[in-house]
């Protein structure tokens, strides 16, 4: 969107504090190896300037995908930091990164977890999954869980049942800030492509070599380690049963 270029950050304070975080790297689309053929490459851009931490995405995901209590395909972390009165809170929505080189796929012994050729979505075939939990260990982002209803691995699938029919994912549909933008990175005209091309974006844990396809604009990637290093108050609320951030 055209406004993103001129966007002036209102949170220089936070920015300064965020620098030095080991978890961040600026990524541009050119640094991501994409297949050249006509297939789609679905991705999401999360513009945290437009995210207000409302959690509509988390609930929309639960209802759309019937996610059992205790497990989450999508959550929104609150990062509160600073010392009174210079304290701010920022929001970091989390979901599966639909990685270009997904470690969950490489460890799966049955082929139940695979990356779809036609659009890059990483899915689990619950008919094939044996519930061995290798993928759960392997995902550096803690995105996977065993669904108690099926006994098989589960995670965000970009709402495949919607996307296949030409609908945006449910979390995108409800987002009041229009902070979540979904689309095809292989289409240079798509909004995700344009956003990635015209903004400094970051991904989570780039050092893992997974090639995440969820790109953040203006995200605060502070974690507890940064807090310790900088000697400031940092509190991260995950809003899920798993209270530790992964």
């Amino acid at each position: 969107m055209s406004e993103s270029k001129q966007q002036v950050s209102r949170r220089d304070f936070i920015k300064k504090m965020a620098t030095g975080s080991a978890a961040v790297a600026t990524t541009t689309v050119s640094s991501v190896a994409l297949p050249a053929e006509k297939n789609k490459r679905y991705a999401m851009v999360i513009d945290t300037r437009r995210c207000v931490g409302c959690q509509a995405c988390s609930v929309a995901c639960k209802t759309e995908n019937d996610v059992p209590l205790g497990e989450t395909r999508n959550w929104v972390e609150y990062i509160e930091k600073g010392e009174f009165p210079n304290v701010r809170r920022s929001f970091l929505p989390r979901l599966c990164n639909h990685c270009e080189d997904p470690q969950c796929v490489s460890v799966c012994p049955t082929g139940a977890t695979y990356k779809r050729k036609e659009d890059g979505i990483v899915v689990v075939d619950s008919d094939v999954c044996i519930g061995c939990k290798y993928c759960i260990q392997a995902c550096p982002y803690g995105m996977r869980f065993i669904n108690p209803k099926t006994g098989t691995a589960d995670k965000c699938d970009f709402c495949l049942h919607r996307v296949e029919k030409g609908l945006v994912p449910s979390c995108v549909n409800t987002c009041q800030g229009r902070a979540r933008i979904f689309g095809d990175l292989n289409d240079p005209q798509s909004e995700v492509s344009q956003l990635v091309a015209t903004n400094a974006t970051t991904v989570l844990r780039p050092e893992m070599g997974t090639g995440p396809m969820v790109f953040y604009i203006d995200a605060d990637h502070t974690d507890e380690r940064d807090a310790e290093k900088q000697g400031i108050y940092v509190r991260i609320d995950t809003h899920r049963r798993q209270q530790k951030r992964v």
Partner: peptide, 20 residues
Amino acid sequence: ATVLTQAADLPEWGNKGYSR
């Protein structure tokens, strides 16, 4: 008003839903 470039193949926003 935000000026937008038109992309070729756009997903629909919603008000239509499919059974999982």
